[in-house]
């Protein structure tokens, strides 16, 4: 669906995006992660045909972004991180206006507007002025606006920023529904646990460069080169640490009170042996588990806090 090849954007001496290359498959949700100033918004604006790259190319469904912006706009729905609304328009009029701007005939627009308002749960607000909506409702309305022309690719820049937990949950459910409807989604967010639960693919960007990308599992594997073992004991943590250090597959052991954490490269047989050894030595083990992949940990691990 999306191919980015050597994309670079420079503002004078500042390089906002530096030789960025990645691909996004159809019907996937690609989480674009990075610290502030990493180049996420710049990349998304280039893909939405709102910025011309200094060099490099990008194709959306085969159409080159800079070569055929009109066609690309038809294929993409863009939701910026900060956006305004026309406060003198009603909710229905707002969507109708954008529908007309995408060249949808008046006869079809009414049905599309109704469907979209149902989708984002704003049908009851149809006759209200846009300005009277809450932030969460405006975010949903803007998402509906980006869908008005039925694009194949959604480019969503921080769609959940500033939303309360319930509104974030609703937004997440909405995006999953859109994915189920066959949309490909690129989404940037700072709320990493949310992305981890939603995205099929992740790209971590820092200082304009893509540090790592792939499926969440691939990225986890690339970064950690193994699994993380978490063992909680009732007491005798120091003794347990000494015992663990003698075990095969454990690289180093960190003790944090009653919790022992250790990166583990062995197989399940080794894992079973470790537990047997601990219990056999009389260590009071409360829990013995493998920690789930945590995008936040990965993010902290691969980024260095470099900001352009």
């Amino acid at each position: 669906m999306l191919v980015v090849e050597g994309l670079t954007k420079k503002y004078g001496k500042l390089t906002a995006v530096d030789n960025l290359s990645f691909t996004v498959k159809e019907e996937s949700i690609f989480g674009f992660v990075g610290p502030n100033g990493a180049g996420k918004t710049t990349t998304m604006k280039i893909l939405a045909t709102l910025l011309a790259p200094t060099s490099g190319r990008a194709w959306i469904a085969g159409e080159e972004v800079t070569g055929n912006p009109g066609r690309v706009r038809q294929l993409t729905g863009y939701m910026p991180d900060f956006f305004g609304v026309y406060d003198d328009l009603k909710v229905g009029e707002y969507l109708d206006f954008y529908g007309a701007s995408y060249g949808i005939p008046a006869g079809r627009r009414k049905r599309i507007v109704n469907d979209l308002l149902e989708l984002v749960d704003l049908a009851h607000k149809r006759e209200d002025y846009v300005d009277s909506l809450s932030r969460g409702m405006k975010q949903r309305l803007c998402l509906a606006r980006s869908l008005v022309h039925d694009p194949a690719l959604l480019i969503l820049d921080e769609p959940a920023s500033g939303l309360d937990p319930r509104a974030r949950f609703e937004m997440r459910e909405l995006l999953k529904e859109l994915q189920a409807m066959g949309k490909t989604i690129i989404i940037s967010s700072h709320i990493l646990p949310e992305l981890a639960g939603m995205c099929t693919h992740v790209g971590i960007i820092e200082a304009g460069r893509l540090v790592v990308s792939g499926t969440v599992e691939e990225v986890t594997h690339q970064v950690r080169a193994g699994r993380m073992l978490e063992i909680r004991v009732l007491d005798r943590a120091v003794e347990a640490e000494a015992l663990l250090k003698t075990q095969c597959g454990l690289i180093e052991v960190k003790v944090n009170g009653d919790l022992l954490e250790a990166p583990f490269t062995g197989d399940d047989v080794n894992l079973s042996n470790i537990l047997t050894t601990l219990v056999g030595a009389g260590i009071p083990v409360v829990s013995f588990s493998e920690s789930k992949s945590n995008l936040e940990d990965i993010f902290m691990q691969v980024t260095k806090g470099v900001v352009q």
């Binding site: 709102l50 009109g70 910026p80 954008y98 701007s101 022309h149």
Partner: peptide, 13 residues
């Protein structure tokens, strides 16, 4: 009003 980008990325020239 931050509406120009939204307008420019439509099919309107």
């Amino acid at each position: 009003r931050q509406t120009l980008d939204l307008l420019v990325c439509t099919r309107l020239s």
